[in-house]
Simulated scan of single mutants.
Amino acid sequence: MGDVPARLTVVTLGARDLPTLRRFYATLGWPQVDGSDDAWAGFLVGGVLLALYPLPELAAEAALAATAPAAGFTLACNVDSAEQVDTAYEAALAAGATPVAEPTTREWGGRSGYVADPEGNRWEIAYASSAVFDARGALVSFG
Rank of each mutant, 00 (worst) to 15 (best):
G2R: 13
D3Q: 13
D3L: 13
D3N: 12
V4D: 12
P5N: 10
R7Q: 14
R7V: 13
L8H: 05
T9G: 11
T9Q: 10
T9L: 10
V10A: 07
V11Q: 13
L13C: 07
R16T: 14
L18G: 02
L18E: 01
L18N: 02
T20W: 03
R23W: 03
R23T: 12
T27Q: 13
T27M: 03
L28R: 09
L28S: 10
G29V: 10
P31W: 08
V33F: 02
S36Y: 08
A39G: 13
A39T: 15
W40V: 11
W40M: 11
W40E: 07
A41P: 03
A41Q: 05
V45F: 03
V45L: 15
V45G: 01
V45C: 12
G46H: 03
G46A: 12
V48C: 07
V48K: 01
V48A: 08
L50R: 08
P56M: 09
E57M: 05
E57W: 01
A59I: 10
E61G: 11
E61K: 14
A62Y: 11
A63N: 13
A65D: 15
A66R: 14
A66W: 06
A66V: 15
T67R: 05
A68R: 15
A68L: 13
A68N: 05
P69V: 13
A70Q: 15
G72S: 08
G72H: 09
T74G: 07
T74E: 15
A76M: 08
A76K: 01
C77N: 07
C77A: 10
N78Q: 05
V79M: 00
V79I: 04
V79A: 01
D80E: 12
S81M: 03
A82G: 12
A82T: 06
E83S: 15
E83F: 06
Q84H: 07
V85E: 00
A88P: 00
Y89G: 02
Y89K: 01
A91H: 05
L93E: 05
L93V: 07
L93D: 09
L93F: 07
A94C: 10
A97H: 10
A97K: 12
A97E: 09
T98Y: 06
T98Q: 15
P99K: 09
V100Q: 05
A101V: 08
P103Q: 08
P103S: 09
T104K: 14
T105W: 03
E107Q: 11
W108Q: 10
G109L: 12
G110W: 01
R111P: 09
S112W: 03
S112D: 15
S112Q: 12
G113I: 08
A116C: 09
P118V: 11
E119Q: 15
R122Q: 13
A126T: 11
Y127W: 15
Y127S: 03
A128C: 00
A128Y: 00
S130R: 00
S130Q: 02
S130D: 01
V132T: 14
F133G: 02
R136I: 00
R136T: 12
G137W: 00
G137S: 03
A138Y: 02
V140S: 00
V140D: 00
V140L: 00
F142Y: 14
G143W: 00
